[in-house]
Design a binder for these strands. Structure first.
Lengths: 339, 339
DNA sequence: CTGTTAGCGCTTTCAA
DNA sequence: TTGAAAGCGCTAACAG
């Protein structure tokens, strides 16, 4: 029915009248093997479509050529877009990608990390969800020799590399632009407490106002734990406002719904800016302005760093950890351009 | 600096004064090991956070507890949503997920399949992109003992399971609804040639018209290889129309842009229905109607089938192949509901 | 330049 | 009920 017997090194060796070591060396381009032998070996390997057993290799070399990627959810296209980029970059470098998502629960997130560790990936790239106050378990994984690189969110007190959005400047520029356009009463829809991104975006907002000597009105800073809260919170705002900046695009979409329902014109009465530049932004009416987080830069930097860490680890060399901030870009669309 | 030495079976054995075989058996709940021994072994394993080396296991058992998932792109949220579901289902069953995307090129798609085969995954779940006229290489992979299950698109002449959308009925219902609402001149923006989905959606469109004795006007059937062509093709339509059905949501968004630019009112002048129900549909103005493809059903069915195939293969039993059609659901929103 | 040998961590006969 | 030993497929010392 099916042969189902994969060719292995010894099969090649037998057919060629060589030892397995020679064949192995030939395949791995060992310097001291004559070209002719290499050619013959590779030829046959190709003909029989021989593929080395990755488990035998993994067992021996403790390298799996596999990177684990952890993310909270596939629902955010920003994350997915990063995954896509990671996947492309890693494919180029000959790495495979094991992916796992873990949802909002801390317990599941921990488990997901452990599963990756158990799978003996060479390294982990993670978009964490929770503020790991006790990152002991992460340190344990790192101590086992699996470097972890974090994307988008910073976890304090952890020796690791971080590749994050320059949230501060991203929001700063957005608010700065609005002020230049004459808006003064700018709402900020703040994101979930526990995220470093919420914090820095809020700081950017405040600093932009401060730098133009505009007093910060606490009533305009509206914390929303999720996009579901946005409309309700906006209902109960009892001060005037002429612009809204948001933790992310989904908050902005909700805000847009709200404004429409109140017959408040965008951008004439109120300007609106999201964050992340989800592809949807082009399809809302009016089209949504947003802050672009260039995902390909995230992916490239992350891959570069994790591979470097893996190599350093292999050579028992020290690693310098750092926080890398990826510059954003303000994408203006109809929701901001007063006619 | 780092211990970096994972605990292994022999470490447990040594500490317990047992042989590795006994420890192994205890861990695997071998019947002839006394409960007390099992308890002690498991206790220690837990304390030292022992995790069996998956490579040693893989080498021995030829089972990797890993499923490869192949998809053309992460850009389509329909695909991503399926991945998310696969990932959850497979996690429950103790499987890991290796993911790879391959873009539009046939060559890359082939390579991606091969890479998966080389990675010795237990099975492959694929959303193919191309119409593999010569599926020899797929058969080779299947012959190597790796079952492949295809999602969303059918490849003729291949012994495999397929889980696809009931495209025909999905589009049929959409068109049927429009006709009931009094629309008669319904455009169909047809998808890429090579996709079985394009074909069946078109058939559904035609059959709906036919069943209501409406003549099919070829000028209303507009083939578009990609969403980029939509606007341009619509420009040159020179017959009247009062509704548009689309190969997918992105086509519909483009169509919406076009209609807006022409000041054609949606849904008053022209009704618009997409396909896939991307989450964006809720945020366009007017909100986009679409055909829901329940991704969780895809995921569940796919996992069920592939695991069954793996098991049958392991027991050297025959597998019955089939095409499973997942029912769609018409999601009506503003783009269809005349006021 | 090439073959022999040992061993990666685990499971699984085969004996005891 | 348990241990010793072999071996999964491959690579890397160590000899030649």
């Amino acid at each position: 029915m099916k042969p189902n017997r994969r060719v292995k090194l010894s099969d090649l060796a037998k057919q060629l009248g060589l030892s397995t070591s020679t064949v192995s060396r030939a395949l791995n381009d060992h310097p001291k093997i004559p070209h002719e032998t290499k050619r013959r070996v590779k030829q046959l390997a190709n003909d029989l479509s021989y593929h080395p057993n990755p488990f035998a290799k993994g067992l021996l070399q403790k390298k799996t050529k596999t990177i684990g990627v952890l993310l909270p959810s596939f629902k955010m296209s920003f994350f997915v877009s990063i995954i896509e980029c990671l996947q492309q970059e890693l494919k180029l470098k000959g790495y495979k990608l094991i992916v796992s998502s873990f949802g909002p629960s801390l317990k599941e997130e921990k488990e997901a990390f452990w599963e990756m560790a158990k799978a003996h990936v060479d390294g982990i790239i993670a978009i964490p969800n929770n503020d790991h106050e006790d990152p002991t378990f992460l340190n344990n994984i790192i101590d086992e020799g699996i470097p972890i690189l974090f994307i988008d969110r910073i976890i304090d007190s952890l020796d690791a590399n971080f590749v994050v959005t320059d949230d501060f400047n991203g929001m700063f520029e957005a608010v700065d632009y609005l002020i230049d356009k004459g808006r003064r009463k700018i709402i900020h829809l703040e994101g979930p407490d526990e995220l470093s991104t919420s914090f820095f975006r809020l700081q950017g907002y405040k600093e932009a106002l401060r730098s133009k000597q505009i007093e910060i009105d606490k009533r305009l800073i509206i914390p929303c734990q999720s996009k579901e809260e946005v409309i309700q919170k906006l209902q109960s705002v009892d001060v005037e406002f002429d612009a809204i900046t948001c933790f992310n695009d989904y908050y902005a979409f909700e805000a847009l719904q709200f404004l429409k329902s109140k017959n408040i014109r965008v951008p004439d009465d109120v300007c609106l800016i999201g964050f992340s530049d989800e592809p949807i932004c082009q399809y809302t009416t009016p089209q949504m302005s947003s802050v672009i987080q260039p995902t390909s830069l995230f992916g490239k930097k992350a891959v570069e760093l994790i591979l470097h860490e893996i190599q350093q680890l292999q050579n028992n060399k020290a690693i310098d950890f750092d926080i890398y901030k990826i510059k954003t870009q303000l994408q203006l669309r109809q929701s901001c351009l007063s006619v």
